[in-house]
Design a binder for these strands. Structure first.
Length: 679
DNA sequence: GGGGAAACTACTC
DNA sequence: TTCCAGAGTAGTTTCCCC
């Protein structure tokens, strides 16, 4: 982020942008040779003064303080202390060296600018032109032509356009990427090809070449890069060296490995990001992996045991050579960004949306958990998390909202630009499935990869042990563009019925008639469900409604301790046209002749006036026309289209696993990683 | 003081 | 004109309870 070139440069007021590295990093493939000074200046000019910028400055100050503390600790170390830490470091280095395994051949395959490449494949006119996938607020990835201008993933589009005025923006199309990532078995993979090489008398280099050719043929032109090395840490680094459409082979030789790692910038290592790079450089003067070993005593003095172990293994170029166990998912979350607002009704609407999306995801994966974490990003970009652990496992929208609204309410008043919910601490019985619904087994990967096998030349030699498993990972992450909604999609958290409708496009439509149809078709089942769950939801009614009332309004006494049945019956009575037609379960909030009622309780006119923008008068007129016999103006809470199908398209469904084929069996230890997986 | 929960940070793409 | 994402994991620190 605001990485300082060095601490001395912090006082450089003539070129303040030199301190502002938010959007520029030459750690990314394709960014070499970028006019760093120009990019930094433009990004600085476009960012300065913004809330985002101020928050980055705050974070940078925090890191600088941390670095100063570390320097102070270093300065206090006496020769005897340093000698002690050197002994500790030497012992760790010896132990690590004893674990070095140069017998394996690992290949890391990585797709090149995946989203951008897919878009170019479907529109060849984009070829050779600078292009970014995304929009003005944020871009997901940029092709190599755009990267030469300093444009990169996770950069706001308006800055990218300033850097490259000819930049072509292509909106994200997740269905397309899903299709192609299915073909390529995702876009990043580790394969232990040791046994294949032995059996076929070939090299890792040749296997990598064949794999890349297979991906190219299978997809009709997408390219990938590969790294071949004795361990996963090195293979990952190597795959980045000759990007795009290239490969790099590191021999299984200690001298070659040590020579390779010695001059390698620490930032090239997976797990070392901009902050760690900054700290290592400015606190300890470490920029390359070789320097980690040279300053090993300081590493042991300043960092925790696990961090020191990691840094020293990086210095020695020692990485994982085994095939990691498939790990179960630890948490599941959903978050959305929107235009910053302090409107509490809006914030609770958003919260309800997210709770429902989370619940849908949980039910799709059959998960239940105990710890709910609310994530908030304030208008000033400050991130807060608040968590609660309940006695019982939860997964329903109602239960999530019950806890989430309490957590959010405790933070009010606050102006927010993001709300997220995460559920963790899963029910042990429910855990066991792969952590990612898109994960497939190694058998899936190879047995369904006909073209790949064809390119490998010998089908039978690649049949796999069906007990092998692997993990998959989507490299280019999803970027939802519903970030700046001003309208509100509030579903009654008391309504269990919507859960069964989430995959139905009608349930997310803004069309009134369609919602009514759904309600009609499911009301009986819903009523039964609600009766069954009546007791469970007694608290919930108040918890959900109370926050909606906003400051100055208390939950009406007449509803203290109310059951759902009572609320529903009153809502039906008072709500007549609005509630019975639109489904009182879909809308807690409605307006009757400019008097707003929540759960049938009339609110003062000021409540409506303060929230005028949330009411859809057009929809109200339509409703009024259709419902003859009404003599009052009815307004319902504006319904926003939630692109659920868009979200759903980001998640892939498991494919039927083909039956293992007969034939010669040579296992390939391959797995598809999560980005944060240890090497 | 140990252990668990919560809060926060860093990192990956 | 547009104005800085989303999902997930892990490590560290802090706090609180027993």
């Amino acid at each position: 982020m605001l990485a300082m070139a060095n601490t001395e440069s912090s006082g450089d007021t003539a070129r303040p942008w030199q301190c502002y590295n938010t959007a520029y990093t030459n750690a990314k493939a394709g960014m070499e040779g970028v006019d760093k000074e120009k990019v930094q200046r433009i990004v600085y000019e476009m960012s300065k003064g913004s809330q985002y910028f101020r928050n980055e400055e705050r974070k940078e100050a925090f890191i600088r303080e941390k670095i100063e503390n570390m320097r102070a600790r270093c300065a206090k170390l006496k020769p005897a202390d340093l000698a002690h830490y050197q002994t500790v470091a030497d012992k760790i280095i010896l132990e690590l060296e004893a674990t070095r395994d140069l017998s394996r051949i690992w290949v890391h395959v990585d797709m090149d600018a995946f989203y951008a490449a897919v878009e170019t494949l479907s529109d060849p006119s984009l070829k050779g032109k600078p292009m970014a996938v995304g929009g003005m607020s944020m871009i997901s990835t940029a092709n190599y032509e755009a990267r030469r201008f300093g444009v990169r993933a996770a950069m706001p589009g308006f800055i990218a356009r300033k850097l490259c005025p000819e930049l072509i923006f292509v909106p994200t199309d997740f269905k397309k990427y899903t299709y192609y990532s299915d073909l390529t078995r995702k876009d990043e993979a580790y394969l232990d090809v040791t046994e294949v090489c032995k059996e076929r008398g070939t090299t890792g280099e040749e296997i990598a070449r064949e794999l890349r050719a297979g991906v190219h043929d299978e997809t009709g032109g997408l390219t990938c890069s590969a790294g071949v090395a004795p361990n996963r840490l090195l293979a990952k680094v190597c795959s980045d060296i000759n990007k795009p459409n290239g490969q790099f082979i590191l021999p299984n030789d200690r001298m070659a490995v040590m020579t390779f790692i010695s001059s390698l910038p620490v930032r090239k290592i997976g797990g070392i990001g901009k902050v760690t790079e900054h700290i290592l450089r400015d606190a300890l003067g470490i920029s390359t992996c070789e320097e980690i070993l040279q300053k090993s005593s300081y590493i042991c003095a300043l960092f925790s045991n696990s961090s020191a172990d990691f840094f020293l293994s990086v210095g020695l170029a020692i990485g994982g050579t085994d095939t990691p166990q498939v790990r179960s998912r630890r948490s599941i979350s959903n978050e959305r960004t929107f235009s910053a607002t302090g409107d509490e009704a809006f914030l609770f609407c958003k919260l309800a949306d997210i709770a429902e999306m989370l619940s849908t995801d949980l039910q799709k994966e059959g998960l239940r958990g105990r710890t709910l974490t609310l994530k908030l990003k304030t208008a000033s970009f400050e991130v807060r998390t608040r968590a609660v652990t309940s006695q019982k496992n939860i997964c329903s929208t109602e239960d999530i909202m019950k806890h989430a609204s309490k957590l959010l309410k405790a933070e009010l008043p606050v102006s927010l630009r993001l709300i997220g919910l995460r559920l963790s601490h899963f029910d042990e019985e429910k855990v066991g499935a792969p952590s990612d619904p898109t994960q497939k087994t190694l058998t899936d990967y190879m047995l369904s990869g006909d073209a790949l096998r064809k390119n490998m030349g010998d089908q039978s030699s690649l049949d796999l042990d069906p007990t092998d498993h692997c993990m998959m990972h989507v490299e280019e992450t999803c970027l939802s563009k519903d970030g700046h909604q001003t309208s509100c999609d509030y579903r009654d958290p008391l309504d269990e019925n919507h859960l069964s409708n989430l995959d139905d496009s009608k349930s997310t439509s803004g069309n009134f008639e369609e919602k009514e149809e759904i309600y009609e078709s499911t009301s009986n089942a819903n009523a039964e469900k609600m009766n069954a769950n009546d007791n469970q939801n007694e608290d919930n009614v108040q918890d959900v409604v109370r926050p909606l009332l906003g400051p100055g309004y208390s939950f009406p006494d007449q509803f203290e301790g109310s059951s759902l049945d009572r609320v529903n019956s009153v809502t039906k009575t008072l709500g007549d046209v609005a509630s019975s037609s639109v489904s009182q379960k879909k809308f807690l909030l409605w307006v009757n002749d400019y008097k707003c009622s929540i759960c049938g309780i009339e609110m003062p006119p000021s409540f409506v006036e303060e929230r005028q923008e949330h009411f859809d008068f057009h929809l109200a007129e339509k409703l009024q026309k259709e419902e003859s016999g009404t003599d009052f103006k009815t307004c319902v809470l504006k319904k926003r289209n939630v692109p659920k199908d868009h979200i759903a398209s980001q998640r892939k469904h498991k494919k039927q696993k083909p039956s293992p084929k007969e034939g010669k069996h040579i296992p390939i230890d391959a797995f598809f990683v999560k980005s944060n997986q240890n090497f």
